[in-house]
Write a protein that binds this DNA or RNA. Structure first.
Lengths: 361, 361
DNA sequence: ACCGCGTTTGCAATCGATTGCTAAAATCGT
DNA sequence: ACGATTTTAGCAATCGATTGCAAACGCGGT
């Protein structure tokens, strides 16, 4: 008569403890047990019964099946989160923010690594919806995004984070990319630079577009040539290195404002490939202040955004939406967060006098 | 009588298209429609009917409710993945590997940022199980892990990744931490170092423990003093900086083998705080080769593991388990992956002759 | 003793898909 | 043409919890 497991049912064949089992143990009906175990309906059952039921649940090791509950209630308490590339360090803090904000309200994140291809993104989104997520957070959206179109068409609550969308069909939380680039340009100009190039991000993404626009506007406002722009094909180091090499090859600049830290790091590589040094020969400003860029050589001057907070806000926005009565949805809240400049070692006053360098053309 | 939406049902109040709706449209029974739409059971229904049903499904925009299916079949096709800190760059590639391997078989990852606290980890695990995940992948496990205990006790399929567990109660996929540290030590010794310190990771984690053991064994095998060890309180830069400062304060070493890249970067900070330079005064070897450590200054010599592949293998192991008949589970497969040394700029021959430096004691 | 009112509880339908079983239909062999 | 198979399709139970409705109960007032 060794009691093999504390709290286990008598019979050897261990069976699932469902609500029925708890109800039986407490001699009440399933429905009563359900109400007793749910804080929101607990007041409907006698205090004495609640105690008995809770005790039984504890003793049996009952754990409610959220799946079944979701089916009945129509809410899964799951939020689908789509990122284009989970390895890109910029997304980790966003995910963290989203996660903590969701967890606080009992939601979980279903993270999907959707890649950059629109078709795949669409199918990933369909998968998520098939899993009955209550809503979507998209860090993937392009300027004219099919996934957004689908969400709108099918009434799937969704918010955009980090990247927004031309038509603003959904709420979004983004950094003020225009302003951020202005900070970068003004910083460089204040150091004495006048010939500044822009390493632009992909033009189908709002960040690429807005930052480029910010660059052009800031340069023009200061009476400088805003024409030195090369666009990288993707937000990746390799693409940044190629674009930077092209830019340096064709234009005599003393500084580069990059659309993104990864592009800036790519520019580092291009520089060293050409035997140039940063910031002696060329100053570089990045964008995002992603983890570890303070440790690279030279430490990267960049525009700081607060991705964790961005993620939190996006999640909060979505939860608001889910909590608001039909018809009252916050369709088009566009939250724009203020970026800031963080000066490190990759920028300095131009070293060589503008006319002293030699270049073709 | 404007037909507002193509393919939408006639009535204005748009209702969910469920299997019943499709069945009605194709004039068959629910069950027939279910079978026709499921590749595994499609052969049970006449080809002509399949066509009709598929057409109806397409026209109505039917999407199957995985939630309901899961309830009935008992499989959610969801795998819970627990990481201690999603912002730690080492985990992103692991997640990526897990994700792609899972996706290949129609599974999705439910990623949870569980923190370092055992109690919270336990509650997060309970949450995941409550969501009826089919299994768990744990990147969090300590040497004696309560979550592991729970999984074993409750028969929840789970595999460990990156960190293993003393008792090997579950399958795991880890790097050969012992061997990795041996590579690091041998590299330093081959450069001429003899007084080498170890920046150890937390001793409740297998990585901290095994790497430390590897350090000690390698040093002893080479007839060197294996006693210079300081343990960091966590795998974080700050903790690494503090531990490194203490180590350098108390011992005259010419090189440090760190248990982890983050600790190595912390050591960088400690060095510069003491006015020392790497590798001139002190050589440093990291561990993991996480993203961007090739760009820091100096570029970090480190031990490369293949976290993406690790994640893929862990996922594959779990899926094998789930697919194998009861009683045939691969309870204790321990996969150990071979690490490799990647030499960069943070290590060099000791600069100053061992006896020339001055230190107290 | 009866009525009315408020509190507890039970009943049974429901969410949407899957599947064992069985009946009907189609096919085949002789 | 008839019985034996093999396909194909329908029926109904099932997964586990939630919830509208109504019955039962307790209590105080008259």
């Amino acid at each position: 008569m060794t009691s093999t497991e504390p709290g286990a049912a008598e019979q050897g064949a261990r069976m699932r403890v469902d609500l029925q089992a708890v109800a039986d143990a407490a001699s009440v009906h399933r429905s009563t047990a359900s109400r007793a175990l749910n804080p929101a309906t607990r007041h409907l059952v006698a205090a004495e019964a609640v105690a008995r039921i809770e005790e039984a649940a504890r003793a049996l090791g009952y754990r409610r099946d959220d799946l079944a509950a979701s089916l009945r209630t129509g809410r899964s308490y799951l939020i689908g989160v789509m990122v284009p590339d989970i390895v890109n360090p910029i997304f980790a803090p966003i995910l963290q923010g989203v996660e903590t904000a969701l967890a606080k309200q009992g939601y979980s994140a279903l993270v999907a690594n959707a890649g950059n291809d629109a078709k795949r993104q669409l199918s990933v989104a369909e998968q998520l919806i098939g899993r009955r997520v209550d809503g979507l957070i998209l860090a993937t959206s392009a300027e004219d995004d099919p996934v957004v179109a689908m969400c709108v068409a099918q009434d799937v609550p969704a918010v955009l984070v980090n990247r927004s969308e031309r038509a603003s069909r959904l709420p979004s939380v983004v950094s003020d990319d225009f302003e951020g680039m202005k900070l970068a340009v003004e910083h460089l100009v204040s150091l004495g630079h006048t010939r500044i190039g822009h390493l632009a991000g992909p033009s189908h993404l709002s960040t690429g577009l807005r930052r480029r626009a910010g660059f052009e506007a800031a340069m023009k406002a200061l009476g400088l040539d805003a024409g030195v722009i090369v666009t990288a094909s993707a937000y990746q180091r390799g693409a940044g290195a190629m674009a930077a090499a092209e830019l340096l090859d064709r234009h005599a600049v003393t500084a580069i404002a990059a659309s993104n830290d990864l592009l800036a790091l790519g520019a580092y590589r291009a520089l060293s490939g050409m035997g140039l040094s940063c910031p002696r020969d060329i100053s570089i400003v990045g964008h995002n202040d992603m983890p570890l860029v303070d440790m690279v050589s030279p430490p990267l001057t960049t525009i700081r955004i607060d991705p964790t907070n961005m993620g939190e806000r996006a999640a909060a926005l979505l939860l608001d939406w889910l909590g608001s009565p039909p018809g009252m949805e916050p369709r088009a809240t566009q939250q724009v967060m203020r970026p800031s400049l963080v000066v490190r070692g990759s920028t300095s006053a131009p070293f060589s006098p503008p006319s002293a360098t030699s270049w073709p053309g």
